[in-house]
Amino acid sequence: MNIFRLTGDLSHLAAIIILLLKIWKTRSCAGISGKSQILFALVFTSRYLDLLTSFISLYNTTMKVIYIGCAYATVYLIYAKFKATYDGNHDTFRVEFLVVPVGGLAFLVNHDFSPLEILWTFSIYLESVAILPQLFMISKTGEAETITTHYLFFLGLYRALYLINWIWRFYFEGFFDMIAIVAGVVQTILYCDFFYLYVTKGEGRSQLSIPT
């Protein structure tokens, strides 16, 4: 494991914890897309089914369990515990427009036509676009709380660091996985507009406004 992969994982963990703590501390999930969080829970569930079939390392197992646990805890907080604060009127992205094409693509373009492999591919494709309901919600309301922008920053940084990890692995191990790389590039590109606003306008502001 190289430093980019490790910092990518930690960045991902930071994003997940930041969101969970934000909701817990403020007792509110205002401004958070429950749909994106359901998609992320679906991503982790379909990707980490190998927890049941193979053991890779203690690190690997621990992180997977934490990711899945936090994802479902977040969904629980949004749709059950703090349901009254959930801004469903602004969370109107049609997720079937993501899940259905992504499911079809996973069936068509994969490394091996087996259930676990298709589900893994599905999770990779779905993760690349799972943030869209959240970005759509922010563009609709026109603003995001600072802590939400930190969450998005770490979530975007994670896949960007993974891209560097894959470049590193290509040069030093001759390793590459086209499905992960293409989806990773798409995923990172979706955050670019946000990164720009985060860096140029996020500093010292209490709220980030994204022009529609």
Binding site: M1, R5, S54, S57, N60, N165, E173, F175
Partner: peptide, 10 residues
């Protein structure tokens, strides 16, 4: 861990 596959990643 030189033999990482893509599945070893998160």
């Amino acid at each position: 861990e030189e033999t990482d596959s893509i599945k070893d990643e998160l």
